[in-house]
Amino acid sequence: MKYNYLFIALFFVATSVNAQKDYVITVDGKDYEIALDGNEDVKIKGKLVNIALKKKDTLLLDDDYFELKYTKQHKVSRVEIESDIEQIMLMTAGGSGLIIQKYGSFNPSMLQEMMMNEVTKESVSYGYNLKREDYDKELSSGETIKVLKSVLTYKGETEVYEVMAHGKKDEGIIVMTMNMNLGVEDGGEDMIQLMWNSLSIKP
């Protein structure tokens, strides 16, 4: 059903439980509350219209340096560490996920090995056995990058860390993945795999 007079604007008023009517849809100047993945029957110009609000299953994280895909179950958080360093995180409740550090004033490629050492040294000190399984990865944008991979095991538990770096003159990113629950269905493995399959560096 099409109405020429209908102009719809979405306003995010809160982020909470999906069953709550946390969104407002403005139709032809009138506001209607609706829940994400919910349906509402509203009267517009005397006609009953069904309105639904849904979120795409796969979303795009579009940055000026890179882009990647992630699922709607996870949320992106950003924090500015310093004036020229931004940190972007996608994590599961179980602690698996990925961290991207974006540098705006220097090429961070030289920090790749140091980053891996930093995230694994505490586990190694505790008694975890570390095995390196570094490999080369071709990104969807065509670049071949070196990925450092550490597999840590201890009394039947396995943690996997991967670190890649890509830099240009005076800028770049470091991407670190953490699978803290190998074999556990918490969404972490799927998130990491989707990132690797979709990560693209912009020219």
Rank of each mutant, 00 (worst) to 15 (best):
V79N: 13
V17Y: 08
S77H: 03
L90I: 02
K55V: 10
L53F: 02
M89S: 14
S77A: 10
I44D: 04
D63R: 12
Q87V: 00
K45E: 04
K69N: 12
D41C: 01
K30R: 14
K75W: 02
V76D: 03
K69D: 02
T26Q: 10
E82W: 03
I85K: 15
T15L: 15
E82R: 14
Y65W: 07
S16D: 10
L68P: 02
Q20M: 09
S16L: 08
L48Q: 12
A52F: 00
T71L: 08
I25D: 00
N18S: 12
G95P: 03
M91G: 01
Y70C: 05
N39A: 10
K75R: 12
I25Y: 00
H74Y: 14
I25W: 01
D84M: 10
V49R: 08
D31T: 02
I88Q: 11
D63A: 06
V27N: 04
I34Y: 09
V79T: 13
K54E: 04
K55T: 09
V76E: 08
I51T: 11
K21L: 05
A93W: 00
L61N: 07
M89E: 07
D41L: 07
L60I: 11
F66W: 04
K43T: 12
K47V: 03
L59T: 09
E80C: 03
D63E: 11
V17A: 14
L36Q: 13
D57N: 14
V27C: 13
D22G: 14
K56T: 06
T15S: 13
R78P: 00
E67G: 10
V42G: 05
A52R: 09
L90T: 00
F66P: 01
L90E: 00
T58H: 05
K56F: 02
T92H: 03
N50K: 15
V27K: 05
V17D: 10
L90H: 00
D62G: 09
V76Y: 09
V42W: 03
L36G: 04
L59I: 14
A35D: 05
D31C: 02
G38S: 13
D64H: 11
